[in-house]
Design a protein around this nucleic acid. Structure first.
Lengths: 85, 85
DNA sequence: ATTGTAATTAGATATTTGGCTAAATGTCTA
DNA sequence: TAGACATTTAGCCAAATATCTAATTACAAT
């Protein structure tokens, strides 16, 4: 879980996740939405992928990124332990 | 939400939160559970407090820490947007 | 084969973070 | 009020992180 929480700790990465809620996007499309160089975005993507928050799939020259929703349930479960209603 | 995710990104701080699930504890009691100096734990507590994840209450010489469960619901809501079931 | 496009990897640098010790603050009790 | 105890604040350092540019890899098309 550490890599997941570390991945979520950065605003750029959270924004990437929110973008992927609507559509699967290529690395290039994602980077267009930020004033950050492509290599930096690529690095963020690799952290998100390492945390299993996203999946990548190559299609020709492009690499498409999408959410891996399974891990989100783990986060919810972790946090729900604190609600102790 | 940024301070919340930043606060959750550190394993020591997550462990502190888990300890506080069972009991409200003083800063000293918390620090006894780690091989980390008291000032460092105090700093972690201040980050958690800044993120509104915990509440502190002085009782004489001691300062008791407890979970502020309201913010945990915000985290759950944020994460649940990604499940898009 | 060569060229162009998409993306990542490598290497450098600046900032942030997490840890420490020492000093300061707040509170209790004698 | 002095001394002891609990905790935080201040100041410093090392390690981790986020960013950049330049170089490399992967693929497509001519």
């Amino acid at each position: 879980m550490n890599s997941v929480f570390k991945a979520l700790a950065d605003p750029t990465r959270r924004e990437i996740l929110i973008m992927l809620q609507k559509d699967n996007l290529t690395a290039g499309e994602i980077s267009e939405n930020f004033n950050i160089s492509k290599p930096s975005i690529s690095h963020h993507l690799s952290l998100l992928k390492n945390a299993d928050l996203i999946i990548s799939e190559r299609n020709g020259q492009r690499i498409y990124y999408s959410l891996n929703t399974t891990v989100f349930q783990d986060i919810v479960n972790w946090v729900l332990n604190f609600k102790k209603v």
